[in-house]
Write a protein that binds this DNA or RNA. Structure first.
Length: 321
DNA sequence: TCGTGTCAAGATCTT
DNA sequence: AAGATCTTGACACGA
């Protein structure tokens, strides 16, 4: 059973390498000339794209194949205030270079629109804004030349709006309404409050969409069902996919702040999950979601070296025997 | 330069 | 009905 590790957006080992630089609307609005505004947006975007490439090269050096792009690559991209700006056309060369690097190395790259993106909202405006945000993510992937069967966007189901059943129905309705080029990118993840792994599994089966299992979220929100009984079906949602199943993993910050992410990954917990997954013996990828980002990945990976039943291949790959 | 309040966005909980 | 909270990294501003 081969397992690959990945991390999210930021790299803490590289200095001055944020891929998420931005500007506030307030500051942006204070700029007087159109030229100055454009200059500022372009400067930030150029730095973000450059730093993304630096991170990807770093990943290459350390054999890390799995990585999530930040949603903040382009500052204020979906805000009406920048509507006139062609953030794709202005950086076509950079997008192509990043995309080519990803494809040349056969990396598994994803993105995760944030929790304001809610396609099951009963409010039209919220749905429209969400559509614009999804469109932004998809445009970036398209500009990078990343196809829709390998390069996915992970999304949650959304709000409950006092009636879960109706809200799931509205999710189905709005999901099929999405343009093909957006819908085909989407895969779904259980959240830590509203939609449990069991809920999302049902939705994924019906829509024939792969499910990302978030182990920590499952521990936060479940109705007594355990992973052993769900994981086989969850992994089966990846049957026809190019990549193996993907799992998100984080550890609770504390007993009191259980839902918050800890700095690092708790080894024991992680091994418990490996034992559950080992029963299926299917390869899968793990997205490490810890405050210490890449450092948390290395911390975990180094500890796994010590185990007899693990054949450590490199920082980003190991085999469970 | 550093510390801290604030920031595009929605939902949900609290009052 | 209005306001606080969630959650987050980074900005922005004032000391």
């Amino acid at each position: 059973m081969l397992v690959r590790l990945g991390y999210v957006a930021m790299n803490l080992n590289l200095e001055n390498c944020s891929p998420s630089g931005t500007i506030t609307v307030k500051t942006f609005s204070k700029l007087t000339s159109e030229e100055g505004k454009l200059h500022r947006l372009r400067k930030i975007t150029r730095e973000n794209l450059n730093n993304t490439l630096r991170i990807l090269r770093y990943n290459k050096a350390y054999n890390i194949d799995v990585y999530r792009l930040t949603s903040k690559l382009v500052p204020l991209a979906t805000h009406p205030i920048t509507k006139e700006w062609d953030y794709i056309g202005d950086f076509m060369d950079e997008y192509i270079e990043i995309g080519q690097f990803i494809k040349d190395n056969n990396y598994r790259i994803s993105a995760h629109p944030d929790h304001y993106t809610l396609i099951n909202s009963p409010t039209d405006k919220v749905f429209e804004d969400s559509l614009r945000d999804l469109d932004y993510h998809v445009k970036l992937f398209e500009a990078m030349g990343l196809d829709d069967y390998r390069y996915k966007l992970v999304m949650h189901i959304g709000g409950v709006y006092k009636n879960k059943e109706l809200s799931i129905e509205r999710f189905y309705e709005n999901f099929v309404k999405l343009p093909d080029r957006i819908r085909k990118r989407l895969i779904l993840e259980n959240d830590d409050k509203s939609y449990t792994a069991k809920d999302v599994l049902g939705i994924c089966k019906r829509l024939k969409v792969p499910m990302v299992l978030d182990v920590h979220h499952h521990n936060c929100a479940n109705e007594g069902e355990n992973l052993e009984e769900l994981i086989s079906d969850i992994f089966d949602t990846w049957q026809d996919e190019y990549f193996v199943p993907k799992v998100h993993f984080s550890s609770p910050k504390s007993q009191k702040e259980f839902r918050s992410h800890a700095d690092d990954i708790e080894l024991e917990e992680f091994c418990e999950f490996l034992a559950i997954a080992k029963k299926l013996d299917r390869d899968f990828d793990v997205m490490i979601e810890a405050k210490n980002k890449d450092k948390a990945l290395f911390n975990l990976s180094n500890k796994l070296k010590e185990f007899e039943n693990i054949r450590w291949i490199n920082e980003g790959h190991f085999e469970v025997l």
